[in-house]
Design a protein around this nucleic acid. Structure first.
Lengths: 147, 147
DNA sequence: TGCGATAGACAGATTATCTGTCTAATCTGG
DNA sequence: CCAGATTAGACAGATAATCTGTCTATCGCA
């Protein structure tokens, strides 16, 4: 429970903006005929780096337990959007990587995000939007335990 | 799926900040011995206005279906944190209101939020934090379909 | 080498969420 | 002022997402 004030607090504003962006990206996938990826799966997939990412790290970034992340990765693997390969650096670990099949998805989502950000920039001004980005980036140093 | 870039995109930054705030508030409740409110319940409860709010409106604000909101309100009612009273303005509707029992919860959560915001202000500067707030407030006009 | 920490799989339970349907009440255009 | 469309929210049922706890293999360090 963050608060029950009437004038919206920062938490709610962050939430509204985040959900709007996420929703638009996911809706764009559906509009493009990609209906076999859920929002929760997308949240995980969006955090996979270009060289693959460990399940543990995905879990941390998405703020879910390793178990939840593993569960979602399993589904993404079943639909062919990711693959798991051994991590050469650590034989306990496996790297989750996007497959070629994910290309269209990533492209569709990214271009929708770009479109949304353009709308936002038009509404509040590019400079103000960039200020938000930069401030949140600095804020991440204290809000994001990992990096 | 928002994107898979390495340099964090705005969506992830919004998410990280939002979750950090929410997590801190919820942890403060647990630390204060309030362990019978889940994060999802708190998300709903935080949107209840001082004069009561309809389930439909809570659902819209929290971006869940009426059914989900109704389910969570039911749980909050069972633990005594909210009550449902008839809406004098519309006999179909019922207003969800916080009870006296919720006072401590609201107070605890709010003061933790204030503490977090103070930390954030110290880290990036009060002016920059306020700029984020104001920009997100303006952004809400296009990201929040309702008001 | 030996012990604590980490990666992630497995099992099981719980919580949250959705779609679809239904009734009662309200709103609105003719 | 009434008929049809809309809205509030309950009910039923299914699914999705998430958690706690446990286990094995591996790693890293003192």
């Amino acid at each position: 429970m963050t608060t029950n004030r009437q004038e919206p607090n920062l938490g709610i504003l962050l939430f509204v903006a985040y959900r709007a962006l996420e929703r638009r990206a996911h809706d764009a996938l559906v509009a493009a005929g990609i209906t076999d990826i859920t929002l929760a799966q997308a949240r995980i997939a969006a955090r996979i780096g270009p060289h693959g990412t460990r399940v543990s790290e995905l879990a941390e970034q998405a703020r879910v337990t390793k178990q939840s992340a593993g569960f979602l990765v399993e589904q993404l693997e079943a639909t062919g959007y990711v693959e798991r390969v051994p991590d050469p650096a650590d034989r306990r670990a496996r790297l989750v990587r996007l497959t070629a099949r994910a290309d269209k998805v990533v492209k569709t989502a990214n271009s929708e995000v770009d479109r949304v950000l353009a709308e936002w920039a038009e509404h509040v001004g590019p400079d103000r939007l960039r200020q938000v980005y930069e401030t949140l980036l600095d804020l991440r140093e204290i809000t994001d335990p990992w990096r």
